[in-house]
Amino acid sequence: MVTTAEPKARAPLTRGRIVRAAVHYIDTHGLAGLSMHKLGAELDVKAMSLYKYVANKGDLLDGVVEQLWLEVENAAAATSDWREGYRSFAQALRETVHRHPNAASLITSQGIMPEPALRCIRAHITAACKAGVPKARAYAWLRTIASYALGTALNDVAWGSGQAGCRPSTASELVRPGVPRDLADVAEVFCGQSDPDAQFELGLGLMLRGISP
Rank of each mutant, 00 (worst) to 15 (best):
V45M: 01
P168E: 04
T14W: 06
W69L: 13
Q91G: 04
N74Q: 14
T170P: 00
W82V: 01
M1H: 12
F190V: 15
L70D: 15
R83E: 08
G210L: 08
Y53D: 06
R15G: 12
L68N: 11
Y148R: 06
L61I: 10
G30V: 05
I112V: 15
L13W: 07
L70K: 11
A9R: 13
R167K: 08
S212W: 07
H124R: 08
V64D: 01
V175E: 09
A41E: 11
E188H: 14
H98G: 09
T4S: 13
R137E: 11
D156G: 09
A77K: 03
S161F: 07
I121R: 13
L13H: 06
V179D: 14
H29D: 07
L183M: 13
A103Q: 00
A75P: 10
A47G: 03
R119E: 05
S147W: 02
K135P: 01
R143Y: 14
A11K: 11
L208T: 10
E73I: 00
A171G: 01
A78Q: 02
A11V: 12
S161Q: 11
S88M: 10
Q67E: 15
P116I: 04
K57Q: 14
K130Y: 11
S169N: 06
A21E: 04
G63L: 01
Y148C: 07
G58C: 02
R143E: 13
R167F: 01
R83D: 03
A55Q: 13
E66V: 05
A131W: 09
S49D: 08
E188K: 14
I211C: 00
K46R: 13
L142M: 14
K8H: 09
M36A: 14
A146I: 01
T14N: 06
V65E: 05
A127W: 02
A5V: 07
R119L: 09
A47Q: 13
S194H: 07
A184N: 11
P180E: 06
R176F: 02
I211N: 00
T14G: 06
W69S: 08
E6G: 11
G58H: 04
G58S: 09
R176P: 02
P168Y: 04
V2C: 14
W82Q: 02
P196C: 11
I107L: 13
I121K: 10
R15E: 13
V186D: 15
A90H: 14
L68H: 09
R209D: 15
R17V: 09
H124V: 08
P168I: 06
I121P: 11
P180I: 10
L61E: 05
L70R: 15
D156P: 11
D182G: 09
P196Y: 05
